[in-house]
Design a protein around this nucleic acid. Sequence first.
DNA 1: ATTGGTGTACGAATATCTTCGTAAACGAAT
DNA 2: ATTCGTTTACGAAGATATTCGTACACCAAT
Lengths: 127, 127
Amino acid sequence: MKHTRPTESELEILSVLWEKGASTVREIHDVLSQTKDAGYTTTLKLMQIMHEKKLLHRDTSSKTHVYTAAISQQVTQQQLLNKMIDTVFGGSASQLVLQALGHHHSSDEELEKIRQYLAAIEKQQKG
Amino acid sequence: MKHTRPTESELEILSVLWEKGASTVREIHDVLSQTKDAGYTTTLKLMQIMHEKKLLHRDTSSKTHVYTAAISQQVTQQQLLNKMIDTVFGGSASQLVLQALGHHHSSDEELEKIRQYLAAIEKQQKG
DNA sequence: ATTGGTGTACGAATATCTTCGTAAACGAAT
DNA sequence: ATTCGTTTACGAAGATATTCGTACACCAAT
């Protein structure tokens, strides 16, 4: 088995599936076509290929097939983060964190979670 | 102008240039070949193409050409982060931050920077 | 049972990325 | 000036990703 990292287009499809859960090609395509210009059969083909690659599960029990993501969002996030920290942030996760915090608005709630996380680390180090 | 996002291999080369500054093909190749298996001419060709794409500057004043990155690490980081937050983290920068903090060791010093950054945000919001 | 709408399957064209063989240029050492 | 090692230039093959045309299956409404 070779490289099974999702491509750019595949990630876009996975993204929708993670968000909405089990979906038909039509549903995915409708979402994607809001921001992207591609025909229906293109989306269909991609999803068929992703199924072959085991990136998607497929329920063919009814005429209109229903797809779900076969790889978890978390694991995928981690893989891509690792690669990115490595090649784009010179190996420093903190650099990535600062960059992300600096250019994206985060809600108070989310920032609070981060603070708590940092506090937990500090406590652990002292103890 | 079209899409000039660096490819995977191109990022690897940029990574070395960001780290080491101006370098020859030979120098880049020697670094890359520690972790990757590719011929010298492959690296050369890639860098020539990157020069055409304006991803690299090239000094041809001596026989052995010297290359430098033509796009900044910061801007590249931001572009890739945006894309990634969008398609892999459902739009939440904080999710990315937590994931990054959770799975990578960061030095005390770096964590302290992050704390300070968060504190600055808090202050700004109150004021 | 014919028609129209919606779906999947398949194959091929296109585009893009990656790799490297080969040739020619150059300089240094003989 | 010949040889040797290093370099760039060029072109093309190979791999991978993206796009879509076309055909066929199915169902529902006429």
